[in-house]
Design a protein around this nucleic acid. Sequence first.
RNA 1: GGGCCAGUAGCUCAGCUGGAUAGAGCAAUUGCCUUCUAAGCAAUAGGUCAGGGGUUCGAAUCCUCUCUGGCUCACCA
Length: 578
Amino acid sequence: MNIFNTYLQYINETILILLKDNNIVLENDNLLEKVVVEVPKNKKFGDLSTNAALVLSSTFKAKPFDVAKKLKLKFDTHHDFADVSIANPGFINFTLQEDVWQKLLFNLLETGEWKYEQFGKNNNLNLEFVSANPTGPLHAGHARGAVVGDCLARILKLVGFNITREYYINDAGNQIDVLIKSVQLRYLEQLSGINANIPENLYPGAYLIRIAKKIKNQYDDTLEKLDYENFFLKVNQLVINEILNLIKKDLSNLGVEMDIFTSEKSIIEKGFLDKVLNILKDNKLIYEGILEKPKGKADLDEWEPRPQLLFKSSFFGDDSDRALKKSDGSWTYFANDMAYHLYKIEKTKGNLINILGADHLGYLKRIESAVKALSSNKIKLVNKVCAIVHLMNDDKKIKMSKRSGNFIMLSDLINDLGKDVIRFIMLTRKNEQVLEFDFKKALAQNKDNPVFYVHYAYARCKSIVKNSNIFDHKFSFEEIKMLKDNNELYLIKLISQWPKVVELSAKHMEPHRICYYLIELASEFHSLWNKGKIDESLKFIHVDDTSITKSKLALINSIMLTIKSGLNILSIKPMEDM
RNA sequence: GGGCCAGUAGCUCAGCUGGAUAGAGCAAUUGCCUUCUAAGCAAUAGGUCAGGGGUUCGAAUCCUCUCUGGCUCACCA
């Protein structure tokens, strides 16, 4: 259904014929991959353009313009093209017959939904995202990774990947000790009724009070005399489950779905760490060695050379080899993470994607190295890094600091703004770019707020349908052929780009493109709407002529259908009226 | 000091992965409501794509150096 691919295929076939005609052998097949069909930036160049002649000029040992002339002779015979022209230095521009667009619209409405090229071919893909430590509910900063991951998953699904969304629970590290110690204080606080002083190195969050109450309800004061180790054994799982429930609730309120939550502890219990060590041994990628002192500016007074168990990460391009064991003999986070990635490799039998925060930038190479080592270079790990989000209020930065406990929780954000605005705005920047999230704009009911703008376009469409008093939404081709005005045709052309937007979004793993497209579509629609004020013929409803109105309704329906598919990817429900 | 990400209009950012005269939105100026939602639209103005060098038919995009900002740098997670 992607019209660009249709013509790209035709152009490629034509090139092969031309090569054969001229007894020229393509020295390298990859050359054809450089041939693209795209929409020229400037409308006056027509509907489509191709760089074919520029790509092939050296093969033909001729100037691009002359190659273009040869190609044009072939293209001229195709009945879809109203005009084929050559522009310097050798672009070939196509103007399509009106009925090509009209047919496209007709087919879309017949099918009732967009179809996308299934280049995922049902291949498995594992997408790990959020994976926040289970020490508290999510805060505002987590929203970005959550939304990017969730939408990316939806996009990849549309193009045929079999995708698993996974949350990795770090339930095995130091932070869990800190958590349980904090809970123990809160529990004793419940029993004594005296407010506890929470030391700086423990978690102060009020959510732990609620968990402490639960423990008190369940165990009464029977845990009062326990030392920390035994208290830990008693409540550890309960506390983590309680917090995971908070996190799951946050995710669900944000419209983010997970297929599976995998615990770090369970991976180790299943023996994946041993498996990792064996693989590394077999491939001679592990050794006892001493790392060089890092040359950082940071205070490294405590640094001392020490023999450690190391993974030969540098073999795969990492800057340094990486420690697997800490000085106290326990495994490093990285060692466990290798085990987790081996687990993902084994069960996925396909490529892996991780959505990470910017603070993990320094971690990418070692984990990529790990996946290469553990999969004999067969599995690809793509790391998508989300830059930080600056929360703003009317251009003023809102400061968040962990120490003071002064950071905005995701649940507060959702309560204040609703999930739709958050989801949309989180995708209005490409993920590597720092994002300014302005409360004032998110609450605005005007163009400052892009979701609002898109909703408004959809609601206007709905309103037209309602006011038309036409309830038959089966459209004949004759009706659709009445859409002849350039402004209307332009909208059809824009709509026809939608599958390409989704496919490129998937290919490059860039969900933000969906938002930009929706804004543009909304904008073009609003524009056409207003043209109706100047030019009567462009109004959508023609009271005295049902068939003209129906032709316009066909266009309106296709716009709604497209906005709906876009919002659906973002998991936003279109507003029927406003 | 090393690594990674970024630097595009006064501000916030796109730029279909190398294509044609670099595009939007804010902000500024000026217009458009007796008529399908003015919560909107149109027009004007705004640029050494941080800077130098290179690669080629062609560079904001690729390579290289320099500058600036952010994140990060054994034994945390």
